[in-house]
Design a binder for these strands. Structure first.
Lengths: 345, 345
DNA sequence: ATTGCAATCGTTATCGGTTACGTTTCCAAC
DNA sequence: GTTGGAAACGTAACCGATAACGATTGCAAT
């Protein structure tokens, strides 16, 4: 009860109940072949001693730990949302979650980091891992599910339908009357970044709007990376009337830059993001964005990993989740390059 | 390398190196008593086989797992900030972090939850635990550090200087000219909630402002709980000119209610929170609040737990962290009950 | 009274490391 | 040439639980 007492083991229980440890084990695991009276005796001994089975010893014997891992390089609100989904999917499933994160605060990030942790964990502490937005392809001796994988990855993964989402964004902007639409891209190695850019291109192409490569800024999903890019786009004489940033974090920085330059949003400039992180709804003006339900990404990834570990997964190994355009206050018809009044429907 | 191969064990290494497992163990753990040439052989065998020692087996033998636990009942931005601090403190310390959370989404919370998980974890999976804002006193066979403990707790803990923070808030409001100041309290069992309320009372008393008990609403730190309380306070004919909520989550709800009732903040009503969660800076108007650096709470708790586990803790077992008043746009001189113009210094 | 078959329970090897202890080797000192 | 002793290494018990296997028991069928 207090600190410092030696932990009570299964053989303590066995001794008190007058049976063998095998029988105690059977009772604990609810296995067949123990008489009702013995079960009662063992139960009461367990109760009296306050016995808790050792997760460590159990893990060693079975070769399952019932612990899943989550590896992430950053710990922003995106990851936090994912985490909620993961934990909800795992609650009462018998699996515990262990987290490896590199919170990106001291710049100690190194590229092989994820892989190092994966190999250390797999086959030893965890039964499987979820990896969030990795830098490269991952391999492991235990099952892995990747959220937002790199391009052309064959590892089991969960991704939002970024192509559709980005297409909708551009269609929304085109519908408002925008023709010069800037784009701030994400880390190009990620499939998500590529799809969002591809959606941007396709939607423009289908609408017959000529693509202007100089309107594309090369960001990396890090919010800070968007600042110089936004500045460059907005200080041009022929500045775009709208900017679509590949993530909310970057879009919020675009808002700041616009404010700094004295531009009114959405009057002078429309801004759209992607992700729908909680902060976006609170921004001023509230950010139009694409909801990709990071909660669901996490939830599905956990569900998938769980059944992958238990060997009962049926569905596809690459899951695509729907996205949804969320129109808020940061988008409106342009009034600069198209001086005529454009009424909204 | 690929999936499905049996993990390579220490005896595999031993066989290849032509030594016993004991020697391999000595090499792996850098212990004295192995010749340089043997070390080299073992090292190369480890290298060739890609051997990784089993954390589970090691944990069973030594009675240390090098895993710390974090138990929390909710997973809001408060907890996320704490988590960042914890993980930063633990990085490269050789300790891993395992998280138990009840994200409060399905109302499955039950009061004994924390204690159940604590007893299950301690002495089996973790070497010690951090518990965030528990519902009751906690006990465990391994070290525990509590962030925001209950009142009169004797368990090692880390808390912000809530009394000082709350006092500053009220002094700030008094300085602006407010006299009728409402208060929305937090979960009263927590020391933090009590201290904040105490600070509110003391500051009023010291300023000679008569306390009006009807201006105090009994919330529980859950943002939703503040809604009816704020409504009740603001629909009175003699409504307060300022409301101090014991947490930012609740304060943000007060802002919403005020907006709903057509009250201008800070013109008709000043609002102050406590915590300084990220959302507060983004609110409209930005929320005046008290920064208690949840990051530092987590960081200090982890540092303390770590040394408690290794038995090298020197400092006090109850840590008090400074707070800081952050004045933003949600507070201003009152203009309702005090019609005269009050100039700021 | 045997036989047969379940149901029940104990023995024991094992999971992968760690470590107390014992053994061997080797070299310096007597 | 012994002896002493430290260095280097192997043996085996052990951490706590699980499971294959064998042993015992009880009871119905023969």
């Amino acid at each position: 009860m207090a600190d410092g007492d030696t932990p009570v083991t299964m053989s303590d229980v066995a001794r008190l109940a007058g049976v063998s440890t095998a029988t105690v084990s059977r009772v604990v695991n609810g296995r067949y072949g123990v008489s009702a009276s013995t079960i009662a005796q063992v139960r009461s001994a367990i109760e009296r001693l306050g016995y808790e089975s050792s997760l460590v010893a159990t893990s060693l014997r079975r070769s399952r730990t019932n612990v899943l891992g989550l590896v992430t390089h950053s710990f922003q609100s995106y990851t936090a949302e994912v985490l909620k989904g993961v934990m909800d999917a795992l609650r009462q499933s018998g699996f515990d979650l262990i987290i490896y994160a590199n919170s990106d605060l001291y710049g100690t990030y190194s590229e092989g980091w994820e892989q190092r942790h994966l190999t250390r964990l797999s086959g030893t502490l965890t039964d499987g891992c979820i990896v969030v937005t990795p830098w490269g392809e991952v391999r492991s001796s235990t099952p892995v599910v990747v959220i937002d994988p790199v391009r052309d990855s064959t590892v089991p993964s969960v991704t939002a339908d970024n192509l559709a989402g980005a297409t909708q964004v551009v269609e929304h902007l085109l519908g408002l009357g925008h023709r010069r639409i800037g784009f701030i891209a994400g880390r190009s190695s990620l499939a998500a970044a590529w799809s969002r850019e591809e959606g941007y291109r396709r939607a423009l192409a289908e609408a017959g709007v000529p693509a202007d490569p100089t309107l594309i800024g090369r960001g990396d999903f890090n919010p800070e990376s968007a600042i110089p890019l936004a500045r460059a786009l907005l200080e041009r004489p022929d500045r775009p009337t709208a900017i679509f940033a590949a993530s909310d974090g970057m879009a919020l920085k675009v808002l700041e830059v616009a404010k700094e330059l004295g531009l009114d949003v959405p009057g002078d400039l429309s801004v759209v993001g992607f992700d729908n992180i909680p902060e976006s709804a609170l921004a001023e003006p509230a950010l139009t964005t694409v909801d990709q339900s990071m909660y669901r990404l996490g939830h599905e990834a956990a569900r998938m990993l769980k059944s992958l570990v238990t060997g009962e997964w049926e569905g596809p190994r690459q899951i695509l989740l729907p996205t949804r355009l969320v129109v808020r206050g940061s988008t409106a018809p342009p009034r600069i390059t198209t001086p005529q009044i454009t009424k909204r429907p």
